[in-house]
């Protein structure tokens, strides 16, 4: 399992800039960032090289950060990869709460991040289907 850093943020100008400055000053490398927003507030989700340190640094600066377990799947960066995972989930009626991906250019590989409600079941299914799931360390050493 991998950990994603979630940050609560109001939809106000300057929130993201403040966040990225803190990360830069703490020498934290970002692999991926997504933002989910709702009525006036949002959650910023980060995949970083050191999630525990990131969460601690952000909390010390007064931000509301939480470490949330997610599934990170390594796949070849070619068409059809995502489709296979979606099929596995669909067959067992696993709801995807959130999904996003990023490409590792020099290796021609991609990582998909999934947040699902039925976490242990999803992990078992994907492993059985032959997917490579990354833990924290593997993910950040890519």
């Amino acid at each position: 399992m991998a950990q994603q850093v979630c940050i609560f943020a109001e939809n106000k100008p300057g929130r993201l800039e403040r966040l990225t400055k803190i990360l830069k000053d703490a020498h934290i490398n970002m692999r991926a960032i997504t933002i989910a927003t709702s009525q006036g507030f949002g959650i910023i989700k980060l995949i970083v090289n050191d999630p525990v340190k990131t969460a601690e640094t952000l909390r010390a600066k007064g931000l509301t950060a939480y470490l949330r377990e997610v599934i990170a799947v390594l796949m070849d960066d070619q068409p059809g990869g995502l489709q296979k995972i979606a099929e596995v989930f669909a067959r067992k009626e696993i709801n995807i709460e959130d999904a996003y991906g990023f490409v590792i250019k020099d290796k021609n590989q991609a990582v998909m991040i999934f947040d699902v409600e039925e976490m242990p079941e999803a992990v078992t299914l994907l492993s059985k289907a032959g997917f490579i799931l990354l833990n924290d360390e593997e993910l950040y050493n890519l």
Binding site: F8, S38, G42, I43, K45, T64, Y66, R68
Partner: peptide
Amino acid sequence: EIRAEMFTGDLKHLESVR
């Protein structure tokens, strides 16, 4: 204000709180 201890990074949960 939301309470930091209760935050789990779950947007749906926050929506339901609101």
